[in-house]
Design a protein around this nucleic acid. Structure first.
Lengths: 353, 353
DNA sequence: TCTAATTATTGAAACGTGTCAAGTACTCGA
DNA sequence: TCGAGTACTTGACACGTTTCAATAATTAGA
């Protein structure tokens, strides 16, 4: 890193900006503060000439309304807090974009924080947002229990859970049906004629992994009666590319040899693809591969990766919608909106074998 | 999407939460509001027994300090605004994480907004953040000129430009030396023995594309005297995978045939890789490929993609640091901190040919 | 015991805005 | 010309907090 200065490094301008209040504007326009406020909030009830004079004064003074005062007086904060586990995870950013697109048309500004799975940081953020009097919070809870959120509940701060079901009916929530997703992927392979598949799963401590496994098992049960099919489950310690690469030997060691692999997420699948390429195993001819999450780069690989897409953007939009309902509708009732995952079939599992 | 309700859909709890003020706490604790405020802000000056009584009252009432009132009275907002072009771009989210990591240890909360290149939306966000009295703004300006930011300047809102140099010394800024990045990539290929390379560039209306091209040309000039080398420039309309895929035929049509391709970003490179794979051209044996940006998935490809890494996280940290300096240090002077890009050599250009 | 010094607590003012009852100026009809 | 509307404008108050001069209570010193 290099730090460079142009010329004689001029001191930052000294004429300090003195905050312009509604009172300054009133003085310049030669009216009372009440009138200025009216021009700002109900322009219709003030005479044309006066209105113009005030607007000119606003311009010439560079007045910017102080939201805190407005809010203190009883106005809304027009702010919503979003708390996710990890901002750099595309799933969360897509969700954020969805929420943003819905909320910004209503004039809201979003506060974003990522907890990195830390319950303590989560508590801090939630508290800070409450202090800022956000009108609502969208959150992916870090902890299994929802202890950090009990305050929100009792204080009546509208809250929507992201990709997480409420224990009782305490909050609204938006979720994706991971059981169905697992089922979809497995069924796709069976439909394509694979009778012997491998399911590479992550730690079952993660709810998503548990659910996806359950979906796979469901698909197996549904077919097991009619035909002779089988699914071998392999488990890895983490959902990473490396772990996917390392599990390849175990996959190939299975006998009779499997003809398809389903991975609990795209990173695992990517690792598997690399491992297979290194060993000269062709995809999908020798072995079909399916992932989960539909990360953007999966579609850019060759062969492009079949995967299960989660409608992250729509999750965000819907969460925002639920929040708005809770904010504005006095008859609001909490509910869970569950989304269906979608199988995106691409070359890595296309039935050209 | 399916909407499901459990049981008899209980109406949301009716006992509306009445906001607890410092006055309520004072009443419960049997002290004055001044004392409560002291307990909250300067606990040391209040007697132990009283302090405890107040703290108990805070707990039992569930009091949460109202930041607006605090702020109105002259306190700081502990809020920083971040405005980027696109939240779903990993470069920006990494930068955001960097800024977050630096600022959250100082107790700040971040407001995030993405403009999607719209000057109008940018103006709205900046205005909203000013109304919220953010203590500073980190921004990637959408427009070529900085008209949207002139208000920030005159009103003295600390502002740091992200990946963009200030025209004069109006603001602090953090940038990455794209000229150097282009030079690094091209030089790497020349060093590896390639004498005839192709540079696939995007629209030169984009500053980054202009700069990277300039870097490539610089590398060419530096070598042209000593040996006979050449760089053919191809231009595509957008920095996407598809455009990369489509440019492959033009690359292969060049005669004498080039031995290496440098792309203005990783998406282009990815498209090129796909196009080459489809035509049976081996990488790096027949043709070496280099990208730019070092997107995470580049490392997961096989062959893994050589690329130029931009220290996005560090950019964010530094931007935050500059902002904090401008906020706290009365002797603050604006400056540009320029980061060096880093070449990450991987299999797609490794000299095993 | 009395004074001085120290320690704790109080309560009112101020921050910038929106609201609203009250006031003023103006218009129209008779 | 007067009265009754009508159309604008005013200005004090409230929102929840911090600050600070003033007061009260306690302690130390002589």
């Amino acid at each position: 890193m290099s730090s460079k200065r142009n010329g004689p490094a001029p001191k930052v301008e000294t004429k300090a900006w003195v905050p312009v209040t509604i009172r300054d504007v009133a003085k310049v326009a030669g009216v009372s503060t009440g009138t200025v406020s009216n021009v700002l909030n109900r322009p219709d009830i003030v005479a044309g000439a006066t209105r113009q004079r005030v607007l000119d004064a606003v311009d010439s003074t560079g007045f910017i309304r102080n939201t805190q005062a407005y809010q203190l007086r009883g106005g809304r904060s027009h702010t919503v807090g979003v708390v996710v586990l990890d901002v750099s995870n595309p799933f969360f950013t897509e969700m954020f974009r969805g929420a943003e697109s819905r909320l910004q048309s209503e004039g809201y500004v979003l506060m974003l924080a990522s907890t990195d799975d830390s319950i303590e940081r989560e508590a801090n953020f939630v508290r800070a947002m409450e202090e800022h009097r956000v009108e609502g919070i969208l959150i992916t809870p870090a902890a299994a229990d929802l202890a950090n959120l009990s305050g929100l509940k009792t204080r009546g701060v509208p809250t929507v859970l992201l990709d997480r079901k409420a224990t009782a009916d305490e909050f609204c929530s938006v979720t994706v049906d991971d059981i169905r997703g697992g089922e979809l992927a497995a069924r796709h392979l069976f439909d394509a004629g694979h009778a012997n598949i491998v399911f590479v799963n992550g730690p079952t401590a993660i709810r998503q992994c548990r659910d996806r496994r359950q979906g796979v098992r469901k698909a197996v049960r549904a077919r097991a009666k009619a035909s002779s099919i089988e699914a071998t489950e392999l488990s890895v310690a983490a959902l990473t590319v490396r772990h996917g690469e390392e599990v390849v030997d175990r996959i190939l060691a299975i006998s009779p040899r499997a003809t398809a692999v389903m991975c609990a997420n795209d990173l695992l699948a990517l690792g598997v693809l690399r491992g297979l390429a290194q060993r000269g195993v062709r995809v999908p001819e020798d072995l079909a591969v399916v992932g989960y999450d539909d990360l953007i780069f999966g579609s850019m690989l060759s062969p492009a990766l079949t995967s299960v897409r989660q409608p992250a953007f729509e999750l965000g939009v819907t969460a925002a919608q639920l929040l708005l309902d809770e904010v504005h509708n006095p008859d609001h009732r909490h509910r869970e909106v569950r989304f269906e995952p979608e199988l995106v079939v691409r070359a890595s599992s296309s039935s050209s074998h």
